[in-house]
């Protein structure tokens, strides 16, 4: 028979333990609620978090980058089509899983080369708004836009200015290629040479094996996008430290090199509105 005092002591111990566990759980839930609450008043959050979690362009957005008149004279102007299919996919190695993100808000233009070699692009410029890059995880997006990462507030765009395309080659074997060139589609492979600006730092880069494709506009293509169409597919790597992105995480928890895959679709149809982005030249 256990005395009354002993039973009471056992019960007190049990209640104390239960209370401790409950306190831990309630504290955890409170932290959750607090976190949710803290995102509500924008004035109380850090500057990077003031930006919208994601800012993709709405479908059918008709915005573009103004084309300088002197460049427009050089050849057919193709305007980037934002707000539709994804245009940029980026990936970085991290300890638990690869960080992946994408955007469909790239605006820009390119000037095609002469008729016999349209892929020898004369010029081009594209702007990727940092705020449009999304990984699907809100907190991660906020970190990416913070000052010690891409610094979206000071440098709202990642910019690529094309200077030339080197080593342009038509795609396809000779027999098929000859027929293909007569078709309404053409494809070429070349090396894009230009200046990439990330985090306010500009570096000259080369993007080898970029595929440049042309599709002559017709009734079928007009249902999707008006005008003659052009696409540039390119893959390249960006070393974050070379662009001034340095913090305790880069190179340790997150790989220093960012792998970027792009699919930029263009049309000769001029967008109805420009995004108000200042010309870089």
């Amino acid at each position: 028979m256990i005395p009354k005092e002993k039973t009471l002591q056992t019960r007190t111990n049990w209640i104390a333990r239960t209370l401790a566990v409950t306190t831990v759980c309630v504290a955890g839930t409170g932290a959750l609620a607090q976190d949710k609450k803290s995102t509500a008043p924008p004035s109380e959050v850090e500057p990077a978090a003031k930006l919208p979690a994601t800012a993709p362009l709405p479908e059918g957005s008709k915005v573009g980058l103004p084309v300088p008149a002197e460049l427009a004279k050089k050849g057919s102007v193709y305007h980037c089509i934002p707000g539709k299919d994804r245009q940029v996919f980026f990936q970085s190695d991290a300890p638990f899983e690869k960080i992946e993100g994408q955007s469909n808000a790239v605006i820009g233009y390119t000037i095609a080369g002469p008729k016999e070699n349209p892929a020898a692009l004369q010029a081009g410029e594209w702007h990727l708004p940092v705020a449009s890059m999304t990984t699907g995880i809100r907190k991660r997006d906020e970190h990416m836009r913070a000052d010690n990462w891409l610094g979206a507030e000071k440098n709202p765009n990642i910019i690529f200015v094309l200077r030339e395309v080197q080593s342009v080659q038509p795609v396809g074997n000779k027999t098929v290629g000859a027929d293909t060139l007569k078709d309404s589609t053409k494809a070429y492979v070349g090396t894009l040479v230009g200046d990439l600006t990330v985090h306010g730092v500009t570096k000259s880069i080369e993007v080898p094996e970029a595929t440049i494709m042309f599709v002559k506009g017709n009734d079928d293509t007009a249902k999707i996008a008006p005008g003659d169409l052009m696409a540039i597919r390119a893959k390249f790597h960006v070393k974050l430290s070379e662009f001034g992105v340095k913090n305790e995480v880069v190179g340790r928890k997150v790989a220093e090199e960012l792998s970027i895959d792009t699919a930029l679709y263009h049309s000769t149809q001029e967008p109805s509105a420009t995004a108000g982005v200042a010309k870089t030249k």
Binding site: G101, T185, F214
Partner: peptide, 23 residues
């Protein structure tokens, strides 16, 4: 699917992989 990617499938004999997707 907005259709732009499919317009360029096999354009000019080029074989390019679809852009990866973030789920």
């Amino acid at each position: 699917e907005h259709g732009l990617e499919s317009l360029f499938d096999g354009a000019g004999g080029a074989v390019v992989q679809d852009l990866p997707t973030v789920q």
